[in-house]
Structure formats: structure tokens, C-alpha cells
Simulated scan of single mutants.
Amino acid sequence: MTSLDDLPLRDDLRGREPYGAPQLDVPVALNTNENPYPPSERLVKALGEAVMDVAGSLNRYPDRDAAALRADLAAFLCADTPGAGLTGRNVWAANGSNEIIQQILQAFGGHGRTALGFEPSYSMHPTITRVTGTGWIDAHRAEDFGLEPERAVAAIEEHRPDVVFLTSPNNPTGTALPLDAIEAALDAAPGMVVVDEAYGEFRRAGTPSALSLLPGNPRLIVTRTMSKAFAMAGTRLGYLAADPAVVDALLLVRLPYHLSAVTQAVARTAVAHGEELLGTVDALRRERDALVAWLRGEGLTVADSDANFVLFGTFPDRRRVWEGLLERGVLIREVGPPEWLRVSVGTPAETAAFRTALKEIL
């Protein structure tokens, strides 16, 4: 049989593993940070009607600029962060936030350029960076997974990267960044600064969004997704907010008609029903905070979380704990620093099953 060794694959891709969390059929899946609450019957009906409305014209290409969707997303972000002053010209959308990241690197990275991130952080940042031919620089967070302004500035001044990735709340640690760390990075960075806010809607009260820094900062990009708080992971819709000139740059690298008519219709319907979809966020926050308290009560170390997941440890043999949970029908994520595990916040019943299984193992 033909193998990769027999194909003229790029040398820098040889030996790499494709990204992917385990997809296993288990009673309790708490490994991919999805919102566990499915759409209501009312929303399912609205989504079906939206798809039917565009089904008769699927022989035609969709709006290649997704103008109506971008205007809807801008209005949502303005409600999230009053004063951001966003319009559809400030927003760009693609197939998941990963395609957004890829387009950013295609426009501002590439051969001879570098991107820098503070790890542990989202594993797709270095993966997509390398796939676009951009060099990756691994800077590090503090032991508590925070990122002080001084640490950020020192790494940026040392390496002078073309793109800086800041993740807030951070994945897999759940740690949110203070605005002064982002402002310090902006002041020091010679290129673009990308703040990945995939879990931004879950941040605790009083934790600001980097959206508030957009006015007057044309090199700042804030990315979001509908996969998490919006409970629309299957839609594959990511988006960003930035200066309109950034959107003009991404137009140079986007594929023609990259967002299907169905994706645009479903995403617009989801935004229109945002109050319902985001209505579960407060419940998930409470469940998260209760889970953090319970894990600490069991004598475990837990990172402060502003997301819908919790990083906990430490285990000399985390694989044994992970496998023990799986044997009991609970799937979590073996990710992050070597002695840590990450669990997504589920429904109360799912979280209870996790607690029961973990207590048996401990």
C-alpha cells in the first residue's frame, strides 16, 4: 500500500500528526468544550425554515462577502461590548475560528515571517502557523498560567514576531487576560496582535473583552466563534472584529464563496435567537464554579477558569486517570501540561457522573 513516505509531501509536514480530539461513543462526553444544551424545538423549526428559504437557490453561489451575516454579528458584538462601535465592515466570518486564524496567517504570516504564542495555549495556533509556512515561537506563561505585561513585552521585544497570539480565556487553562497585558503587547508588537476569545462569553462578571480596545488599534484582531456559547458547533462559524483594513487584507487570501448559503442562513438564524442560545451561559458558569470548588475540596489543584471547562491536576500518571474515567463512561481531554487534565462543563447530570467516576478513581 502507498504511504505518506511514497508521496512528495512537504518536508516540514513529515512526521506530524493530524489534529483531533478522540471521537468515542460514550454516555458522557466532556472533552471538546461544546455547549451541552441542544437547540429548542422552536429554534430547530426556525433553522429548518431558514435552510428551506435558501434551498431553492442553491444552484447559485452565495453572497461571497456574507454582508448580512457580518452586520448581524457586528450588532451582537456591540451589545456584548458597548462602545466598540462596530459595523459589518469591522467583521469577517469564515468556517470556524480555525479558518479565521488560517486566513490571518496567510495574510500576515508566511515564509520568512514568525508568529508567537504563550503556551500552554490553544494547540491549533502553532499547527496552523506551521501549515502556512510561518515560523512558530513558543513563549511561556507563568506557573499559574497567567501572563503579566512584563513577560509578554519581554518575549515580543526579544523575538519581534509578525503575529502575536493571545488567548483569553485561555485554552486549555481557562485563564483570562487583564486588558493591561493586551495593551502592553499591542504597544510592543511590530505586527498584528490576535486575541482569541473563543470562550469570551463565559468570562466572569467584570472581566472585560479585548473588543473594548479596538478603537484606535488597527493592528488588533479579536476572534470569536459560534461553536461554544452559541451551542452551534455543527454550524462551523467563526468570526473576527478588527479595523476594516484588516478585512480588506483577508479578502486577498479568502477562497471564493467560502461560506455556503446554508451556513450563512443557519448562522443568521442563530444570532437572531441569541437570547435563547446564550441563555444557558449563566447556568454553565454556575456549574463551572461549583465544579472548581468541588475539585479543590477533593484536594486537587485547579486553574481559575473564565471558560466552560476546567483544568485540574496534578497526576503523576494522568493517563491512568483518563482511562479510569473512560472505563466508567466519561470522556475528558488529556491535554495541556503533562500532569493535568481538562474537563468540559456539562449538564448537571453529566457533571455529577464525572464527579462520581473521578471520586471512585481518587
Rank of each mutant, 00 (worst) to 15 (best):
residue 207 T to W: 03
residue 104 I to Q: 01
residue 185 A to M: 03
residue 93 A to W: 00
residue 84 A to F: 04
residue 2 T to S: 12
residue 312 F to Y: 12
residue 285 R to Q: 14
residue 337 P to F: 02
residue 182 I to S: 02
residue 296 R to A: 10
residue 196 D to H: 07
residue 107 A to P: 08
residue 35 N to T: 13
residue 281 V to N: 10
residue 235 T to I: 15
residue 34 E to F: 08
residue 124 M to A: 11
residue 205 A to V: 14
residue 88 G to N: 07
residue 45 K to P: 00
residue 260 S to G: 15
residue 350 E to D: 15
residue 37 Y to E: 12
residue 142 A to E: 15
residue 201 E to C: 05
residue 242 A to N: 06
residue 280 T to V: 12
residue 179 L to G: 02
residue 101 I to P: 00
residue 33 N to W: 09
residue 222 V to E: 09
residue 145 F to V: 08
residue 34 E to D: 14
residue 21 A to R: 15
residue 340 W to L: 03
residue 126 P to G: 03
residue 223 T to H: 04
residue 120 P to E: 07
residue 228 K to E: 12
residue 181 A to P: 02
residue 241 A to R: 01
residue 227 S to N: 13
residue 135 G to F: 00
residue 276 E to I: 09
residue 63 D to N: 12
residue 306 D to Y: 09
residue 73 L to G: 06
residue 347 T to Y: 05
residue 178 P to W: 02
residue 184 A to K: 11
residue 270 A to R: 08
residue 293 A to N: 12
residue 148 E to Q: 10
residue 72 D to A: 10
residue 228 K to Y: 12
residue 336 G to W: 04
residue 133 G to C: 04
residue 114 T to Y: 05
residue 99 E to Y: 06
residue 221 I to C: 11
residue 204 R to G: 09
residue 34 E to G: 11
residue 278 L to I: 13
residue 171 N to P: 01
residue 266 V to N: 12
residue 266 V to L: 14
residue 216 G to P: 11
residue 86 L to W: 04
residue 132 T to N: 05
residue 208 P to L: 06
residue 282 D to I: 07
residue 110 G to C: 01
residue 81 T to F: 00
residue 181 A to C: 14
residue 254 R to I: 12
residue 40 S to M: 09
residue 42 R to C: 08
residue 222 V to G: 05
residue 146 G to N: 09
residue 119 E to H: 14
residue 1 M to D: 10
residue 120 P to N: 07
residue 252 L to Q: 15
residue 144 D to W: 06
residue 54 V to Q: 06
residue 162 D to S: 11
residue 211 L to H: 00
residue 228 K to Q: 14
residue 7 L to D: 06
residue 159 H to Y: 10
residue 248 D to A: 15
residue 69 L to K: 03
residue 159 H to L: 00
residue 310 V to C: 03
residue 296 R to G: 09
residue 24 L to I: 15
residue 131 V to H: 05
residue 276 E to T: 13
residue 256 P to L: 09
residue 50 A to Q: 05
residue 331 L to A: 04
residue 258 H to K: 08
residue 349 A to C: 08
residue 61 Y to L: 11
residue 103 Q to W: 07
residue 91 V to G: 07
residue 103 Q to L: 13
residue 82 P to E: 00
residue 54 V to T: 13
residue 96 G to F: 07
residue 69 L to T: 07
residue 72 D to F: 00
residue 90 N to P: 08
residue 153 V to D: 03
residue 344 S to M: 06
residue 326 L to M: 07
residue 151 R to T: 15
residue 47 L to P: 03
residue 186 L to C: 09
residue 75 A to V: 13
residue 233 A to C: 05
residue 59 N to L: 06
residue 301 T to R: 13
residue 114 T to V: 06
residue 362 L to E: 08
residue 220 L to I: 10
residue 59 N to F: 10
residue 75 A to D: 15
residue 7 L to C: 05
residue 84 A to K: 04
residue 165 F to K: 00
residue 144 D to R: 08
residue 79 A to Q: 13
residue 116 L to E: 01
residue 212 S to M: 09
residue 305 S to E: 09
residue 162 D to Y: 00
residue 362 L to G: 11
residue 338 P to W: 02
residue 237 L to E: 10
residue 188 A to W: 09
residue 337 P to H: 05
residue 22 P to H: 04
residue 300 L to M: 14
residue 122 Y to H: 14
residue 354 F to A: 06
residue 295 L to K: 05
residue 202 F to A: 04
residue 276 E to F: 01
residue 313 G to C: 04
residue 265 A to G: 02
residue 91 V to L: 03
residue 44 V to A: 14
residue 122 Y to K: 02
